[in-house]
Computed example of a mutant assay.
Amino acid sequence: MKPYRPAPDPHPVRAKFATARRELSAALIERDDEVDLVLAALVAGEHVLLVGPPGCAKSLLLDALLAWTGGTKFATLLTKFTTPEEVLGPVSLAGLKSDRFVRVTTGKLPEAEFCFLDEVFKASSAILNTLLRVLNERTFDPGDGAVRRVPLRLCVAASNEWPEAGPDLGALFDRFVVRKTVAPIRSRAGRARLLWGPGTVPELSGTITPAEVDAARGAAAALPWSGAAKEALEAVLGDLVRDGVRPGDRRQFRTVGVVRAFAFLCGAERVEPEHLEVARHCLWDDPHEHPERVTRVIAKVANPPGLRVAQLLLEAEGVLGATDARDLAAAATGAAKLGEIERQLGALPGTGRVEAARAYLRDQLRQLKLASIGAV
C-alpha cells in the first residue's frame, strides 16, 4: 500500500503567509486577531484601523511585516499642527521658479508601499482630504494637475480613540474596511510573558516579493464562495438591518474581498460560513454599539469556530478575574466553570486556535488549584 501523500497546495505562496502568520502570532502576545487582520488586508488590498492605548504593538506588527516584504515605509504621528509638507513632501523650489506648484514626494507618503499613521483622526482638513484619495483611489496629484498612481499596498492607522461623528472624519473612517479595538494584554499567561519573558522582537524567517503578494491577491480574489457561505452572508446582512446596522454598499462589497482573503490564508479552496468570522471587523459604522451586534449576528448565523473560541476565552477570563483562589468554595466553583468552558472548546472542530485555547485553560486550572492548595 502506497503511503498517503497530501495533494500539493495549488497556491505555493500561501505557505509563506502561513509561516509569517505563525511566527508573528508566536512573537506578539495576544495579537492573533490583529495578525490575521493585517495579513488579510494585505492580501485583499484594503487598509486597517487599530484603536487602543499606546504600547499595544500596533507599529511593531507593521515593522515586522515590512521586514518580511522589504517594501518602503512611511510613518508619522499626526496632530492638528502637522503640515501637509510633512506628509506629502515640500514644495519644489525649482518648480516655483517656473511658476509651477509641485511637491517633492521623495520619502513621503505618495511614494510609500506601506504606511503607519498614528493618531490619524487628529490631522488637519488639508491632510485628511488628500488621504481620502490616496487611500481609496491610490492616486495623488503633486500639484501640476497630473494625477499619479501611488504604490501603497497597505495602510495601518492607529488611534487612541474612535473618531467623533462628522463629514470629514466619517469619510476617512469609512476608508478603513477593517477596524478593530486593540486591548492591553489581559490573560495571566500573557502578562507573565510580557513581564518576565525575553521580550523578543518579531523576526520572520523568510521574505516575500511584491510579485508573490500580487499572486496571493489574485488567488484570493478568484476563490469561489460556497452556496452555504453566500446564504450565510445574506442572512447576516438581513439580520443586521433588522438590528439597526446598515453597512453601505461599498463596505459590503469590500467585505466580500476581505472574507475571501481570510479564507485563502486559512488554506481553504472556497469560502465557507466559518470564514465570515473576519466580517465582524468590517460590517459596521458605529464603533460604540455596532461591533457587539455584528459579532452576535455572525455567531448566530455562521457559527464560526474562531469566533466561538474568542467568546469562550473572554468568558474564562471573566471567571478567573472573579475567582478568589484563597476562598476554597469560590475556587472550586471557578474550577468547575473553567472545566465546562474547556469541555465546550473540546466540542469545536480541532484547529490550532482551539488546541491553544484548551492548553491555556488547562494551565489556568492548574494554577488555580495550586494557588488554592497554597492558601490552605
Rank of each mutant, 00 (worst) to 15 (best):
H288P: 03
A359Q: 13
F264Q: 01
V309P: 10
R246G: 00
D239E: 15
V104W: 00
T295R: 14
R250D: 13
A325W: 12
V297C: 04
D324L: 06
S98L: 13
E161N: 01
V278S: 05
K16D: 13
A325Y: 09
E203P: 00
I185V: 15
E277L: 00
V120H: 02
T19Y: 02
D32H: 14
A335T: 03
F253V: 14
A229K: 05
I373S: 08
R254I: 08
V309S: 03
K2R: 09
R280E: 11
K180H: 14
Y360F: 10
D99Y: 14
P84D: 01
I29G: 09
L370F: 11
E317C: 00
L88S: 07
R308L: 04
L265A: 02
C282H: 08
L132Y: 14
D214T: 14
T323W: 09
I373A: 13
G227N: 04
P12W: 08
P151Q: 07
P53M: 07
W284P: 06
A112S: 14
Q344L: 14
S372D: 02
T76R: 11
H288M: 07
T181D: 14
P247W: 14
P10G: 01
V259G: 09
K108M: 11
T139Y: 05
H11D: 15
A215M: 02
E23H: 04
A219H: 04
T181V: 11
V51A: 12
P151I: 08
E111H: 02
L152V: 10
L348R: 00
D118G: 06
R358N: 05
V256M: 13
V256E: 13
T255S: 13
F253I: 12
G95C: 01
E289W: 09
T209N: 05
A229G: 08
G374Y: 11
G334A: 04
H281N: 09
I29R: 06
R246N: 04
K108Q: 08
A219G: 05
E274C: 08
V104C: 08
A64S: 13
E85I: 06
R251C: 12
Q344T: 07
D168M: 15
G197V: 11
V278T: 13
A322N: 07
E86R: 14
P224C: 01
P210S: 08
A75E: 10
L204K: 00
K58G: 03
L39R: 11
I127V: 15
I298R: 04
